[in-house]
Simulated assay, not measured.
Amino acid sequence: MVRILKVGGYITFFILALMYFMPKVSSYYYVEQELEKHKIILSHEEVLDNGFSLQLNHVDVSFDSIESASIQSVKVKVFVAYNSIYIEDITLESILGSFFPLHIKDAEMSYSIFKPLEVMAKANGDFGSASAEIHLLDRNISATIRPSKLMLQKYKRTLLMMKKQENGEYIYDKAF
C-alpha cells in the first residue's frame, strides 16, 4: 500500500513538474505563427509565464489586415485533463458597431479530454450573455444567446439571423 502511494506521488509530482516547466511562451509563439496562416494577427501583446498558466496583456487582434479588436487580458491554463482560455475586456473596433455591441466583458473557452470532440464557450457583455458548443467532428457551432435590452433595441437585424425561442433566447446554429 505504501509503495502504491509512493508511485502515485511520484507520478503526480512528475505531471505537475511537466506542466510547470512546459515551454508555454514558445508554444504561444508557435500558435501565433499558425494563426497567421489563417490571416489572424496578434500584436503588441505582453507575454507572461505564471507557472501553471500563460497570461497575455494588451493584445490587438487583426483579421485579414483589418484591426478587429483589442483585448485587455488573456489567461491560458493548460492541464492534462482540462484546458481553458479566459479573456477579459474585449473591445471590438467601431467598424463592427452596426452588427454587434462593441464591448464584451469576458469570455471563456474550455476543452476537456472527457469530451474530446467538443469545445465549450461562454461570454458576457453589452450584448447579454451567450453559451456555445463547438463540435469538432461535425464542424458545427451551436450558440444560445440571452440578449440584453441594448441588443434587442439596436441590433434587431443581427437577431433576425437567429432562431427565437419561446423563453426569449436566440439560437445560432451553423456549420463551419
Rank of each mutant, 00 (worst) to 15 (best):
S26W: 09
S26K: 11
S27F: 03
S27L: 08
S27W: 04
Y28P: 10
Y28D: 08
Y28K: 04
Y28I: 03
Y29P: 14
Y29S: 12
Y29C: 14
Y30A: 07
V31L: 14
E32V: 05
E32H: 06
E34Q: 11
E34S: 10
E34V: 05
L35I: 02
L35T: 01
E36M: 03
K37F: 07
K37I: 05
H38S: 09
K39E: 08
K39Y: 13
I40V: 08
I40M: 01
I41P: 00
I41W: 01
L42K: 00
L42Y: 01
L42G: 00
S43P: 11
S43M: 04
S43D: 10
H44T: 13
H44K: 15
E45S: 13
E45G: 05
E46F: 13
V47Y: 10
L48M: 02
L48K: 15
D49V: 04
D49T: 07
N50W: 03
G51F: 08
F52A: 12
S53M: 13
S53D: 09
S53E: 15
S53L: 14
L54D: 03
Q55M: 08
Q55C: 04
L56F: 02
L56Y: 02
N57F: 08
H58W: 12
D60P: 07
D60E: 10
D60I: 01
D60F: 01
V61I: 06
V61H: 00
V61T: 00
V61W: 00
V61P: 00
S62K: 12
S62V: 03
S62G: 11
D64E: 08
D64M: 10
D64Y: 07
D64G: 09
D64N: 11
D64S: 06
D64R: 10
S65G: 13
S65Q: 15
S65Y: 04
I66Y: 04
I66M: 03
I66D: 04
E67R: 12
E67A: 12
S68Y: 02
S68D: 03
A69R: 01
A69G: 11
S70C: 13
S70T: 11
S70N: 15
I71T: 10
Q72Y: 05
Q72M: 14
Q72I: 12
Q72H: 08
S73Q: 09
S73F: 06
S73E: 13
S73G: 04
S73L: 10
V74F: 01
K75H: 11
K75R: 07
K75D: 11
K75M: 11
V76C: 15
V76S: 14
K77V: 07
V78Y: 15
F79K: 13
F79T: 09
F79S: 10
A81I: 04
A81S: 14
A81Y: 05
Y82P: 15
Y82A: 06
